[in-house]
Design a protein around this nucleic acid. Structure first.
Lengths: 299, 299
DNA sequence: GTGAAAGCGCTAACAA
DNA sequence: TTGTTAGCGCTTTCAC
């Protein structure tokens, strides 16, 4: 018999097996896109963990709620997939399309719903650490470049920023807090406007590295030196963050690890549906490079 | 009846349907990793096209041939998947693990096998264009930083580099051709060594942007200016290439489009098994920014 | 046209 | 232990 298997190159049909057992061993991950390093790294981490445990990962881009809903319909309701990983579940209120009682884990935001587990960064503390780093260097007028307010992490990092100011008894100034869209261009344009309006500042805390890089360009264009005139701290520690000029000080987050963690949690929920939905909070780490330095003047 | 469907929230079971019809409408994509922008963008393009045509895309990382083979076994031989996209099929001879007569499309290299279609960049011409750009600016001693020789594109770009030199009647110098591993670090170290050994050159053509960025760092460290002392051209036009200092001159490739194209081809093969295996060659485009300039001296 | 039945390739529960 | 069979939820064919 064994011989015949070899001879004929027989391999069991996975679909028939899935049908008979009612298990597909397939996970899905819905992400706003697959190219942002943060997302790609989460997905890679999740895929590695999934495969190590005998599952496959189906990655799909859900740029908006409409696509998200269609994906749910085609993948989840048709029972093609046993569990779902959702990156950034609260943008465009896509979480409301989720079916009840389906194994789900959120990434990038703490789940507000008891049915889903979640893996997320300790955003508030990260925001505080970044801001505090600047404060300790003597900066008091610190621009805060945020992501879109519809994203939880943007709100939370801002909360951390405000908390750090408060601890240091620095009055917050609404004109220093600006909403970007994560792109380098948005960082560039916002800082250009601030400069044009003559708003004084010596530090910038950008909620991601791309906006930080854009900010640096705007500063350079009018002859400001980094970090001599203005200190800039980013967020993520994206690849090549250390190869920009100057090398970027930033808050590092281990997105690969969060992907693994999330997949592990999801599989746990699938295999033991009654197990509690865990909420894993991961720390960010300050990486000091050369884009931040002691303030030359105190504004 | 329709009402009942609504009432009970019925949705047909995709697995049972797959079983009955013998079609899973699922494609797989095996990539060395999911985080390199080039790969991620291909996958995103493929996923978009696939979904537009009613298929799903299962992305998996195959860092080595062993994992690749396991993936084939679990995904292809078990008929869970109807078609396969392979990024960089010729590294570690993984192409030899491929089953015969299974719908397959290669990405990143022209297929040498009649059974598979392929979508690839016109590497030789791209290599020529990059080199020629430097030659036109008056450079004659041009360092060539290649990717690992086991990858087709590294070989082909080098062929283009040599061809351009030949056209310009510049003797090739083996000491100027160095094999890197795509990382910024490798670019940095190679240029550092060249500089330490006193090898003269005024131009660098790096086969990707990351190595170009590493090279620039090494040059800067010993006080060389870019592009005044040395011109550097990269490859890929990765995100933020224009935000490095100086903004990178590079060869742009549209990897998203190649992903779409490949998925389209693959679906064509699945739905019409007798259709010819096409081989689509895409052009690269020179993007001139500020890391290249006219040579000050001719060596 | 509409409705019943066979079968997709396995697994699991049963009987021998 | 080993061999047989019912059944997973659809699609398709065939008879009505």
């Amino acid at each position: 018999v064994e011989d015949a298997i070899e001879e004929l190159g027989y391999s069991p049909n996975a679909i028939a097996r899935s049908m008979a057992r009612g298990r597909t061993h397939t996970l899905a991950c819905f992400s706003p896109n697959l190219t942002d390093f943060t997302f790609a790294n989460i997905i890679e981490g999740a895929e590695n963990e999934a495969r190590a445990q005998g599952y496959f990962l189906l990655a799909a881009t859900a740029p908006d709620r409409f696509v998200f809903e269609e994906l749910i319909q085609r993948l989840i309701c048709s029972r093609q997939t046993e569990g779902l990983l959702v990156i950034n579940p609260y943008i465009d209120r896509r979480d409301q399309c989720l079916p009840e009682r389906f194994p789900t884990v959120f990434l990038g935001a703490r789940s507000r719903w008891e049915g889903a587990g979640s893996v997320y960064l300790d955003e508030v503390n990260a925001g505080m650490s970044a801001t505090y780093h600047l404060i300790e260097l003597g900066h008091r007028r610190i621009v805060h470049l945020t992501g879109p307010y519809c994203e939880d992490c943007a709100q939370d990092r801002k909360t951390g920023y405000l908390a750090a100011l408060k601890v240091a008894s620095i009055d917050q100034d609404a004109s220093l807090i600006c909403e970007g869209d994560w792109s380098a261009t948005s960082g560039y344009q916002i800082i250009r406007q601030l400069l044009a309006r003559g708003v004084p500042f010596t530090g910038i805390f950008a909620q991601n590295d791309r906006m930080a890089v854009g900010a640096i360009r705007a500063l350079r264009e009018i002859g400001r030196s980094i970090p001599e005139d203005v200190s800039v701290i980013g967020f993520d520690d994206m690849p090549l963050a250390s190869y920009f000029d100057p090398p970027l000080t930033t808050m590092r987050q281990d997105t690969f690890a969060s992907g693994r963690e999330a997949a592990q949690l999801l599989i746990q929920i699938i295999e033991h549906p009654d197990s509690p939905r865990k909420h894993v909070r991961l720390p960010a780490e300050l990486v000091v490079r050369s884009s931040t330095a002691r303030a030359a003047v105190v504004l």
